[in-house]
Amino acid sequence: MLLPHGTVFAIVDGENFELYRNSGMETSPKLAAMDVPDLNGTNYSAGAKDHDKISRFQTGAPKDKIGKLEEAAHVTAVAEWLNGEVLAHRIDKLVIVADPRSLGEMRRHYHKQLENVLLGEVPKTMTGRPTEDIVQMLHA
Rank of each mutant, 00 (worst) to 15 (best):
A10S: 07
A46M: 15
Y20P: 06
A79K: 02
T127L: 06
D52S: 15
V97M: 06
R107K: 15
A77V: 08
S55H: 10
A33C: 10
H51Q: 14
N22M: 01
A32P: 00
W81S: 07
A88W: 02
L3V: 03
A79R: 04
L31C: 03
N116F: 05
I66S: 12
V135T: 07
L119V: 05
D92H: 09
D64V: 13
D133F: 06
D13N: 08
V75T: 06
H139T: 13
H111K: 07
R21C: 00
M34V: 08
H74G: 13
Y44M: 14
T127N: 05
F17L: 12
L119R: 08
T125H: 08
P100M: 00
M25A: 09
V78H: 03
E15H: 13
P4G: 03
T127A: 08
L3F: 04
P62N: 15
L69M: 15
A72I: 13
S102K: 05
T7S: 10
I11F: 01
N43D: 15
L82H: 01
S55E: 14
E71Q: 14
G128D: 00
M1Y: 11
T131Q: 03
M1T: 10
S23Q: 06
L3N: 04
L138I: 00
P62F: 14
L31F: 02
I11H: 00
E80C: 02
R129M: 03
E70Y: 11
K124A: 09
S55K: 12
N43Q: 14
D50E: 14
N116L: 09
H109D: 02
N22E: 02
G128A: 01
V122C: 13
V36M: 12
V75I: 06
G47N: 13
K124L: 10
A79D: 11
G24T: 04
L114P: 00
L87A: 05
V36S: 09
